[in-house]
Computed example of a mutant assay.
Amino acid sequence: MPTGVERTLPPGDIIVTKTDPKGRITYANATFLAMAALDEAQAIGAPHSIIRHPDMPRCVFAHLWREIEAGREVFAYVNNLAADGAHYWVFAHVTPSRDAAGRLVGYHSNRRGASAAARAVIEPLYAELLAIERAHASRREGLAASQGALADRLAALGKSYEEIVLSLVRL
């Protein structure tokens, strides 16, 4: 359960994880373990969703999975939930990992701290999308509605999710 305590990733620190194709953690650096309040035995083999914060809109993760399963890298702002209930915001870069023959073997993710300026833009958007998801009786309908709302917002701006997210890195 979230405690409301925020943990901040120190400037210059990078969280690194690797997963198998199903999203189970196969590698976690010490920074990830510290931020997530997990030890290596708890992390390795666990689904990466072990750190999913309940206040993250599901449509953002649906977008992320759609992109990486299509073989594309993706950038996203994510609020994570540590095992001790603290949360921490990151700017994530996720890429597919392939073996020498080009077969998908998993995913690699690097995360840095999210700036306050970027969060000031992202947090209200995510709150809106989450409210849309929660307003529906079924999770499926809520996800579809939030995906539609995000698509409408992006169309109105004439930008992709990645363009919006990457524009915030400079804030």
Rank of each mutant, 00 (worst) to 15 (best):
I44V: 14
K22R: 15
G113F: 08
A28V: 09
G85N: 04
V121R: 11
R134S: 08
F32Y: 15
M1A: 13
A114F: 05
A135F: 05
R24T: 04
W89K: 03
V5E: 15
R66I: 06
I68N: 00
I15L: 14
M1L: 15
E69C: 09
A82C: 05
S138C: 08
A37C: 08
P124M: 12
A118S: 06
G71C: 10
W89C: 05
E162W: 07
V90W: 03
E69Q: 15
R119S: 04
I50S: 00
R140I: 07
V60C: 07
H63C: 05
I14T: 15
S138T: 14
E133Y: 03
L129F: 08
G102H: 11
P10G: 06
T95S: 14
A137K: 11
R170Q: 15
T19Q: 01
G23F: 00
A131R: 12
M35W: 08
L150W: 00
I51P: 00
Y126E: 01
H48C: 00
A101G: 12
A76C: 04
Q42T: 03
I164M: 13
L125C: 06
G148F: 04
A120E: 08
A116H: 10
G23C: 02
E123Q: 11
I14H: 10
T8I: 13
A114L: 11
P47G: 13
G113Q: 07
A127R: 14
A82K: 00
G106E: 01
L64R: 02
P11Q: 10
V5Q: 12
A151R: 05
A82R: 02
S167Y: 09
S115Q: 04
V165F: 08
G106R: 01
L143F: 07
A117N: 04
A151L: 02
P124H: 05
L171P: 07
H63A: 12
K18A: 09
G12S: 10
T3N: 11
H87Y: 13
R58G: 14
A46D: 00
A86K: 10
V105A: 06
F61R: 02
V5T: 14
A41H: 09
P47K: 11
R153A: 14
A76Y: 01
M56S: 05
D84L: 14
Y27I: 08
V165P: 00
A101I: 03
N79C: 12
A62Q: 01
V16D: 00
E163A: 11
R72P: 01
C59V: 06
M35K: 03
E69M: 14
P10Q: 10
A155T: 09
F61A: 02
L64I: 11
G4R: 12
A70K: 08
R24M: 06
Y77D: 00
H136K: 15
G71L: 10
T26L: 12
F75I: 09
D39V: 06
V74H: 05
K159T: 04
I15A: 07
L150E: 00
I44D: 04
I44Q: 06
N110L: 15
